[in-house]
Write a protein that binds this DNA or RNA. Sequence first.
DNA 1: GACGTCAATAGGAGGT
DNA 2: ACCTCCTATTGACGTC
Length: 265
Amino acid sequence: MGIDDMCSTGLVLSLGLETPSKIEAQRQAKQGLDLEPSLTLCLSGANRATCDERPPADHLYCQASPHSHNSLSAVSSFSSPRVKRERDLSSEEAEVETTRVSSKASDEDDDGANARKKLRLTKEQSALLEESFKQHSTLNPKQKQALARQLNLRPRQVEVWFQNRRARTKLKQTEVDCEILKKCCETLTDENRRLQKELQDLKALKLAQPFYMHMPAATLTMCPSCERIGAGPSVDGATPTKSPFSMGAKSHLYSHHFTNPSAAC
DNA sequence: GACGTCAATAGGAGGT
DNA sequence: ACCTCCTATTGACGTC
C-alpha cells in the first residue's frame, strides 16, 4: 500500500503546522517570538546533520588574523554597486579600520584583490552573538551598532551573522518538523492498512453472509461469549431469531452494540 | 579529495 | 527610493 492508496482513502495528513506569512514571520521575529518556520517536506535533505548548536571547534583565527583583513578586502571588491552596500561600507568605514589588520595587506592583495578569504569569529564573538540572538532573533539598527562596537565587527557582519543564524534555526526546525511528519505518516499508513484489512474482511463477510449484512445494523446482535449473531429484539417483542451462523471474524465495529447475549445462549 | 561548516554575496519581496 | 529580511548560492577553510 503506497501513498496513492492513502490518497485514495481521502485521508488528509495535517499537523496543524501553520506556516506564517512572510510578513507575519517578520513581525513575530521583530517581537522576539519563536516563530514556526515554513514547513517544507524535502526528504532529499532530511537527514542532514544539524550543526546549529555546535560550537565551532576551529576558532583558530581571531579577529586579528590575516583572514580578517582578507575578508574585509573581499567585501569591498565583491560588493555590488547597489546603493545600500555602498552606504554600508561608507558608514562602516571607521569600523572597517578597527577590524582590519593590514600587516599582510600588500602581499595578499598582490595576487588578487578579489580573493575572498574566510573570516572566523572568535569564541568570544560567537558567544556574545549567540547570547544576543537568544534575546532577540533580529536586531534594530541601534542594537546592531552597539553589538558591532562591542564585538569590534562591522554592523554588516553582525547583520549577516544574524541572518545566517536565523536561516540555520529555521533549517533545524524544518528538519524536526520533517521527522514529525514522517512519523505521523507512518502512523497513518499503519492505521490505513489496518482499516483496509478490516474493510476487506467485512466485504468478504458480506459476500458469505448476505442475509445478515443486508439487515440494518441495529437489528443485529451477537453474543459476546459465543459470538453468535442473531437479529435484535423484534418490535412486537417476539423472541429474537436464533442463528445457525456465527461471525467468522471479530470486528470492533460491532463490539459496542452487543451488550445483550442472544437468546441462543 | 570529499564533505561539512559558515561568513559573505546576490537578488528578490515587502514595508515605509 | 531606500530599508530590512529571506533565500539560494558561493567560496574559504577545517576535518576526516
